[in-house]
Computed example of a mutant assay.
Amino acid sequence: MAGGTSVKSVFDVMAVREQFPILKRQINGRPLVYLDNAASAQKPRAVIDSLVSVMEGSYSNVHRGLHTLSNEATEAFETAREIVARFLNAETPEQVVWTKGGTEAINLVANGIGLDIREGDEIIVTEMEHHSNIVPWHLLRERKGAVLRWAPILDDGSLD
């Protein structure tokens, strides 16, 4: 940084844990630590409260009705897409595709890319991938005759 100053960032783990009600739970006498977020992420209080609010007051199909509740749901859905598009610096909100979770998203990507994969093409994944990001590529390899390559991880956790 200019002038010899530096910015120190502090990640307050306890402040983040406080946002997740389930992390107050103890298992075997110890605080819950949940690491399977690729399969099912735990929800912070803000998300839980938003879900309850929608379920109690305005739940309806998105893009499937002309009544007030459907219009409210559609507007909220598209507003969220616009916010995420800005955050990701997407050219348009339509470039943001909602899925139920990471596994579905990875499967969509693999199946989309899979249309152009040919026998002998190489698919590279890292040794640190979650199971949900390995299976679709294995299946694609089997269907198309591609080669699966593994990028190794160094002792410090970086990619080789």
Score class of each variant (00 low, 15 high):
S50A: 09
K100V: 10
V54D: 11
A85K: 10
K43R: 12
A146H: 14
I153A: 11
R81K: 08
G3L: 06
A46E: 05
G114L: 01
A105K: 08
F77C: 01
R141C: 10
Q42N: 04
V13Y: 05
E122K: 10
V135P: 10
P21Q: 01
A39Y: 13
H138S: 10
A151I: 06
P31N: 13
L88G: 08
W137R: 09
W98D: 11
A73Q: 01
A85M: 07
Q42S: 09
N89C: 07
S60L: 00
S158K: 12
S6C: 08
E75M: 07
H63P: 01
D121L: 01
H138V: 10
S60W: 07
S58I: 06
L32W: 12
G3V: 11
D121C: 06
K144R: 15
G65N: 00
R149D: 05
G112N: 04
V7I: 13
A76D: 01
E82S: 09
F77T: 01
H131I: 14
V7K: 11
L66V: 11
E91P: 04
A2P: 00
M55N: 11
I27S: 02
L32C: 00
V52D: 10
L88C: 07
G114T: 11
R143H: 04
E91L: 00
V13D: 04
N111I: 06
S60H: 02
R143N: 08
Q19A: 10
S40W: 15
N107W: 14
V7L: 12
M55E: 15
E56Q: 10
E94F: 06
I123E: 13
E56S: 05
A105G: 15
M55A: 10
M128W: 15
G3Y: 13
E91Y: 02
M1Q: 12
V13F: 08
L88S: 03
V62H: 01
R141P: 15
L32G: 01
A105F: 05
N61S: 03
A80V: 02
L66S: 06
E142K: 02
V84Q: 05
Q95E: 09
P44V: 02
F77L: 00
A90K: 11
L148A: 15
A85C: 05
N28K: 09
V109A: 12
P21F: 05
V7G: 02
S132R: 11
V7Q: 14
A80S: 08
L159C: 13
G145Y: 02
V109P: 09
M128K: 13
R118H: 14
Y34K: 04
D121P: 03
S70R: 03
T5D: 13
A90L: 05
A38W: 07
L140Q: 12
V96Y: 01
V96R: 02
S58T: 12
N107F: 10
V47D: 06
I48T: 07
P21E: 08
P21N: 07
E104M: 03
F87V: 04
D116G: 00
V62E: 04
V16H: 12
V97Q: 08
S9V: 15
R17S: 08
R141S: 07
P31S: 08
E75H: 11
T99E: 14
E56V: 06
S53L: 09
E91S: 04
G57M: 07
P93T: 03
I27G: 04
L139S: 13
S6M: 08
K24M: 05
E142N: 12
N61F: 03
A15D: 05
Y59A: 00
A41V: 05
